[in-house]
């Protein structure tokens, strides 16, 4: 077993632990922290099923962003939807036998790779050339875009310019999942691609990428408008009522 294989295996074990552990910690924190007051942005749904619809329209269609700014919406939605397709396409490296629907989306996943990079470049262009968005952008905002673009471009390069032995890559990842290490091909573009993905996994739970779980816990979006009908009381607020005046 080559040193390289061992290093990448360890890297992915660590990255997976950080990603899952970090996200679990953050989600637990969000879930445990009370929302003491009813603050839905009105008009808001008056039923729980209404909230599910509202949340779905935010998560799937980026409804509020659409109302806000069409350019950010187009690039943002293009990037996220393409990323979803790309990730689903990559499922084939982790399951055996490959599910039929994963086989069926393979060609779309390739197009999505281009659209993902295009969406990211659009967002980056706004960050660079729109004065007020440049003003609010810090180094980490540019670096995360750079990281995602590099992941997308290196992936496309493997597909179209520097092909690698994907059967071996699949064996490596299946091996990782079964704790049975298999050799990883040593093509530089593949190694760059995998390294960057591992970096993305590691920074996910400590960066603004937390917006992904965050939106589900956003009180302005997930609360039901029923404050006159149902009493909403946080545990710490209930304590104020003991020994009440």
């Amino acid at each position: 077993m080559s040193l390289l294989t061992v290093v990448f295996a360890l890297l992915f074990y660590v990255a997976t632990l950080i990603l899952i552990g970090g996200l679990a910690y953050r989600i637990r924190l969000y879930a445990k922290t009370p929302a003491p007051l009813k603050i839905p942005t009105m008009p808001a749904p008056t039923t729980k099923s209404g909230v599910v619809v509202r949340m779905a329209s935010e998560v799937v269609l980026f409804n509020s962003l659409f109302k806000s700014n069409k350019w950010i919406w187009i690039f943002g939605w293009m990037f996220h939807f393409a990323l979803l397709l790309v990730v689903l396409r990559h499922l084939r490296y982790f399951i055996e036998p490959v599910w039929t629907w994963v086989v069926l989306i393979q060609p779309f996943g390739i197009y999505a790779g281009f659209f993902m990079v295009l969406g990211l470049l659009g967002l980056w262009a706004r960050r660079l050339f729109v004065e007020r968005i440049r003003y609010i952008s810090g180094p980490s905002d540019h670096l995360i875009l750079a990281l995602l673009v590099a992941i997308g471009v290196s992936g496309l390069m493997i597909k179209f310019v520097f092909p690698t032995d994907i059967v071996a890559v699949k064996a490596f990842f299946l091996g990782l999942m079964r704790f049975d290490l298999q050799p990883l091909p040593t093509d530089p573009m593949l190694l760059v691609h995998l390294l960057l993905v591992a970096v993305l996994m590691i920074i996910f739970p400590i960066s603004k990428l937390l917006h992904a779980p965050g939106i589900f816990f956003s009180p302005t979006r997930n609360q039901v408008d029923d404050s006159r009908e149902r009493r909403h009381l946080a545990p710490w607020a209930a304590k104020l009522e003991q020994g009440n005046d």
Binding site: L29, T33, A35, I39, L65, S68, N69, I136, K208, G214
Partner: peptide, 24 residues
């Protein structure tokens, strides 16, 4: 306050600096 208000905790973490609010 971070322990008492989910809004504060989630909102301080979640902003991606997309710029949607900048002209509002």
């Amino acid at each position: 306050l971070l322990g008492k208000y989910r809004s504060l905790q989630v909102y301080l973490d979640s902003c991606v600096k997309c710029g949607a609010c900048t002209d509002k």
